[in-house]
Amino acid sequence: MLLRCGLRGQPEILGAGMNPELEQQLQGELERARKGDRGALARLISVLERGGYGAACVERGLSARAADSYTVGITGAPGAGKSTLVNALLGEMVADAQRVALLAVDPSSPLSRGALLGDRVRMHSHAASPAVFIRSMASRGQLGGLAVATRSARRLLEACGWPLIMIETVGVGQVELDVASTTDTVVVVLNPGWGDEVQANKAGLMEVADIFVINKADKAGLEATRRDLEGALASLPQQRRPAIVETVATEGRGAVDLWAAICAHRQAIEESGELRERRLGQLRAELRGFVEAHLEVALDELFATDCADLQLAAIGRGAVDMPAAGDVLLAELWSLVNSPKRR
């Protein structure tokens, strides 16, 4: 069904249709990745990032979510200390005998499409650990704090048996809603002295955060930020109120508490049944995102044809109005999506 809706990625791939050889090769890679071949896993993430037919082939091989994988999102403004915190947290997770995969997202340059991905610089204590898989992802134009393929990469990691997955979002100065629809526990990182930010983003923060971290807790303004945060959360019922954890990530201080808070949150939502609801919501968001991405490709394709130009010219002449031209294009889009070459 998903394949029927078309293929995402570069237009030249769209018409390629079936390629049993490639499909077989990718299934082989997936088999190897499932057996623990990190090279195969890494290559498959690249395939997902490139999109198109190859990505679709891989995605088809991924079943629904494995119930025993758990995903933690780490978000917060640039400079909040996310990478350093993640480094400290990785230590706790690994000490707890958990294998962890990290997807660290950084922005792509809108001009050059290139990116500097520097998160690993902060994570050298786990650089060669067999228990930690780190993958840097460039956002590749995706807004919302994640990269184009973050969600599918997460599903791949689950399929390959990584029990714990962390996603570190792009820091863009506001709360990233996408992370909430992709992860099971959302950790929002703040710093002392960010009272104004707490006030300004109150609604968004409360919506996404399961745990608040006040990192750099040795800096001035800790108490005030904590007060602002507690004030903002006071209206929530006790059992839904996010924990607040203080950390000094550069010293590793508070990482134990944060890991404990994550475990407690996990236990609570597992027991209350909320986790099941969340995952349904995640699936819905994922499916919708999938459809949207494919529609967008088709739309780009449509606007590259003279079909759009004709309507534009007609609007220019006054021969047709905007809604009417829009209807024509929507009909075209529909037939493009359903065209035989896409099946």
Binding site: G81, S83, T84, D106, L116, G118, D119, V121, R122, V248, A249, T250, E251, G252, R253
Partner: peptide, 11 residues
């Protein structure tokens, strides 16, 4: 005691 300085990453 002191941990590690968080090197600013050039972007």
């Amino acid at each position: 005691v002191f941990g590690d300085w968080a090197t600013p990453i050039q972007t």
